Simulated assay, not measured.
Amino acid sequence: MSSGPVTLKRMLEPLRWRKSPDQPPQSQRCHHDPFDRDTVATIIESDIVPRLLMAHSIEPLTVRDRPQKRIDDLAVSRFAELPMTLEAAGLLDEVDRFIEAGVSVESVYIDLLAPAARSLGEMWTRDECDFVEVTMGLWRLQEVMREISGRYPSIRQSEGPAPRMACLFSPVPGDDHSFGALMIDDVFSRAGWESEVVPQPVRRELLDAVSRRPFDLIGLTVSRECAAGTLRSLITALRKASANPHVAIMVGGRRINEDPALVADVGADGTGTDARAALDVARRLVKAAPARASSQQ
């Protein structure tokens, strides 16, 4: 997991364009153009939002055992406009009203605050706000999450009597942004999986990791444009190197959500549009993995 406090400066660090001599050739890696509006919106969607959810992820005892109230779409839309106009204290008052009404803190994070952060990225893309306004809006949302996380400490699910399933998550090698993989690793850990993450991998490191331990599931996040052939080659190599002949492989992230047909095209077994969906798909894939492997032989 991450080290040190999550500050706005650290969240915006991906905007600093840099090249590394260790990166693969341009034709074989995921890439993006520096400092354009799509880049900022993508970083908010695939990096900053998951980073915030991962860093402040919570599972409060105070609301777990009572019926959970849903946040309706109108309320989500209304709240999404507030980070541009309200200070953090005002946003926190709004969030407190939802929690007092019976909305779980997890739902507040995933269904309310994350869409508000995404909305900032969309406003930037449409040229409806400048970079300073986006930065201030994100800072206010972060302050709200920091306050709530202090009230409701994180709780890991205890290990049950049944063996826990093992999974490994990583961004595609060459994709510099690891926040999505870090977030999904945390979500699966909370759900009882033995989860590991390789936040900044090279291809050989991933292959070595799956050869040493028989993971039930491998998850790859793809937040940038990436050649289908490159991803297909990586998945084929992971299956060949895996210590588990029945390993299930999922792909996810912004790029996959934009083009779900890539899942089958690159030879993956499934995807999930968000963390909740990914958990459900992963359980089904692991359960069905032996039969699926037999049918592919």
Results as ranks from 00 to 15, higher is better:
96 D>K: 12
240 K>P: 01
55 A>Q: 01
182 L>F: 08
161 P>A: 10
216 D>I: 07
129 C>A: 10
219 G>E: 04
49 V>R: 13
66 R>D: 09
145 M>R: 03
257 N>V: 01
41 A>N: 03
128 E>S: 09
138 L>F: 04
27 S>Q: 12
167 C>V: 15
174 G>H: 07
2 S>Y: 05
71 I>M: 00
238 L>R: 02
171 P>Q: 05
212 R>L: 11
22 D>Q: 11
22 D>R: 12
97 R>E: 14
60 P>E: 08
124 W>A: 05
17 W>F: 14
17 W>I: 02
66 R>T: 15
190 R>F: 06
28 Q>Y: 07
238 L>W: 02
115 P>E: 04
167 C>S: 15
59 E>G: 03
125 T>G: 00
238 L>P: 05
98 F>K: 00
215 F>V: 13
173 P>R: 03
24 P>G: 09
264 A>W: 01
112 L>E: 00
229 G>S: 09
38 D>I: 05
207 L>F: 08
206 L>A: 04
106 E>R: 14
235 I>D: 03
160 G>I: 08
71 I>V: 15
219 G>S: 11
49 V>H: 01
16 R>I: 14
183 M>L: 13
55 A>Y: 08
281 V>W: 06
292 R>A: 14
58 I>M: 14
108 V>T: 07
68 Q>A: 14
103 V>R: 00
89 A>P: 02
172 V>Q: 07
123 M>W: 01
272 G>T: 07
